[in-house]
Each structure stands twice: as C-alpha cells, then as structure tokens.
Design a protein around this nucleic acid. Structure first.
Length: 114
DNA sequence: CGAGTGACCGCAA
DNA sequence: ATTGCGGCCACTC
C-alpha cells in the first residue's frame, strides 16, 4: 500500500477523511465509498481504507464499514476484533461479520438539515 | 513519467 | 444468492 498513511503523513485528502471520520457519532457508521465521495473522490474508497489502516488510531475507525455493512479484515484483531468493538458500542453484528447499515448509516448532511 | 499498493466497489457468469 | 475479476484513485519511489 502507499506509504502515505504508514508515515502518518497528512495530505489534504487524508486530513479530510480523518476529520470526517472524527465526526461520526456513536451508533452511526459510514461507508468507505461514502467518505471518499465526501472528500472529493467518489472512487477512492480504497484510499480511505488505507488511511483507516494507518491513520490516527484515536479516531473511530470501527464506525467505518464497507457498503454492505461488512467489517474490516485489516482491523486490529481482524473482523472478530472489529466485531467486538462494535458490539461494545451497542451495534448488532451478524455472524457474517456484518451490521445493518440501513439502520446505522450516518449522513453528515442531515446535520444541516436538522 | 511509469509502476506498484490496497480495512473498496460494481458488474458478469 | 455466491465467486471472480478488473477498475479505481491518492500517493510513493
């Protein structure tokens, strides 16, 4: 993977992604593609994944999932670890390591709409 | 400039 | 429904 995130280098894109992730409230999740789109690159979901792996560990990366609600294989402890973290936050994780994003999906825009 | 990387996404069979 | 494959894009060397 590009060593962008490994070196914890803050590029424009990375900064936006991290900032966005930091705004995800509890019991809410965002998809990689969604995040990428909001950061200006709808097709850069993979990049977001890379940032998730090597980005700021203080951020709630556990609230970032795939579009199908699938957990992250690269999460510390694997999907199992990811699952436990989510469950500890109150999420309901299936045996398939998936969550119901339809029920938890967070859309920052709705913040303004309120 | 060209090639390689990946916690993804979407389409085809 | 599941599996496989290719494209994708920000970034580095």
């Amino acid at each position: 993977m590009s060593k962008v995130m490994e070196g914890a280098i803050h590029t424009r894109f990375v900064a936006r992604v991290e900032e966005l992730v930091s705004t995800i409230p509890k019991l809410k999740v965002m998809t990689y593609g969604q995040i990428a789109a909001m950061c200006g690159s709808p097709r850069a979901a993979r990049i977001v994944g890379g940032i998730a792996h090597f980005g700021d560990p203080n951020l709630p990366w556990q609230r970032v999932v795939s579009k199908q609600g699938g957990l992250a294989s690269g999460y510390p402890g694997g999907k199992s670890g990811h699952k436990q973290v989510l469950e500890s936050e109150g999420f309901i994780v299936n045996d398939d390591f998936k969550i119901d994003i339809g029920n938890h999906l967070w859309q920052p825009n709705q913040q303004e709409l309120l």
